[in-house]
């Protein structure tokens, strides 16, 4: 069962220089919310930003990770 720390580590290593804050919404280890700040999001549409984060976890989202709620922003500010 993934922990918020697992997800945080994987996001931050997949997107070097990013900062991720991950919480387990239900305590059940399958509904998470991740706030990710990365300059990699610069110039991407919101959907592309979210797809970048979902892409880190592949099939696990919808599988062991039942739900992953995402909020993305760049160090310069939210878009």
């Amino acid at each position: 069962m993934p922990t918020p720390e697992d997800l945080k580590t994987r996001i931050e290593s997949a997107l070097p220089g990013s900062t991720a804050t991950v919480e387990d919404l239900t305590g059940g280890g399958d509904h998470f919310r991740a706030e990710v700040v990365s300059d990699r999001f610069d110039g991407l549409s919101r959907i592309e930003q979210h797809q970048l984060v979902y892409g880190i976890f592949g099939d696990e989202v919808g599988g062991p990770i039942h739900a992953l709620s995402i909020k993305t922003s760049t160090p310069g500010g939210t878009r």
Binding site: R46, I47, H50, S69, I70, K71
Partner: peptide, 12 residues
């Protein structure tokens, strides 16, 4: 066109 899921729709 895919707009997104719950998070994106609510932000929008």
């Amino acid at each position: 066109k895919l707009v997104g899921g719950c998070d994106i729709v609510l932000e929008m």
